[in-house]
Design a protein around this nucleic acid. Structure first.
Lengths: 147, 147
DNA sequence: CTTGAAAGGATCTAAGG
DNA sequence: CCTTAGATCCTTTCAAG
């Protein structure tokens, strides 16, 4: 993982569909060289996949919430969340809270349904998302100062 | 947005690099038809982009945390978070909490630095991430029962 | 790692239902 | 709005240095 790999990762995070040829010119290498580097990054598991990002609001999911649980039974809550289609992310955490769920749903009614269904697993504190920011490009820590 | 569009979105969320030809066969259409649908989804903003997913742990960022703020000044906190390289996501929320930050950092020392730097903007409650799940494929709400 | 040539696909266009 | 077929273009691959 040198600086060229870092540049490659930045580009692919920004635009997964860039051609290896174009990527090669932006990092000042030949295409075969870039292709080999990308393959290596994939094999090493540094690149986990390539995904289309969809606008969740256009999927009828107009309400987002982050629910904090002081859970009694994290394993069961985790299983419940993994199976629930409205859940986008969930985190088992150590701190004042024990479990955090981010979800996107359709209406206050469906939100209520979720909360009711999740109640048996812990005490929820619901926070409605007003606005948000999600970073698309993540750099290695050592690159923090090389922007 | 019919069921074919939904299938297309599922596929592209799963694998952004699938060729239009292959995508066409999976949804039982011809490639020109699929290409036109994908273009339309892009123009409508349903598809926001195509991004490589990198393994954050392989980026030296071995510690993840979710920090809850009872903030006094959300605007300033937001600006601070947007500019900070360790922040992955942040949310202005309405609830018991006013601001939520997800970050990935290098060490407890760098975590401490972040907390110290963020203190002026509100009272942080730090939760270290033990394990997590992030959904890669999101379906329209109406598709909840069509899996 | 580079270059250049060869091969294999993918996308695009046009014509038609 | 879809399909099929053909042509073009581009990308990747391969071989040699």
């Amino acid at each position: 993982m040198d600086q060229i790999d870092t540049q490659i990762l930045k580009q692919l995070q920004h635009n997964a569909k860039i051609s290896m040829k174009e990527l090669a010119t932006t990092v000042h290498l030949s295409s075969p060289a870039v292709i080999e580097r990308v393959k290596k990054l994939e094999e090493q598991g540094v690149i986990e996949g390539y995904h289309a990002k969809v606008n969740i609001k256009k999927m009828e999911r107009t309400i987002q919430a982050i629910i904090l649980f002081k859970s009694i039974d994290c394993k069961s809550l985790s299983a419940f969340c993994n199976a629930h289609p409205d859940v986008l992310e969930c985190y088992r955490v150590a701190g004042e809270i024990s479990y955090i769920v981010k979800l996107a749903t359709y209406s206050v009614e469906t939100l209520e349904e979720f909360i009711d269904a999740a109640m048996p697993y812990g005490t929820p504190s619901t926070n409605i998302v007003l606005s948000s920011m999600e970073k698309k490009v993540i750099t290695p820590f050592t690159d923090n100062n090389f922007e």
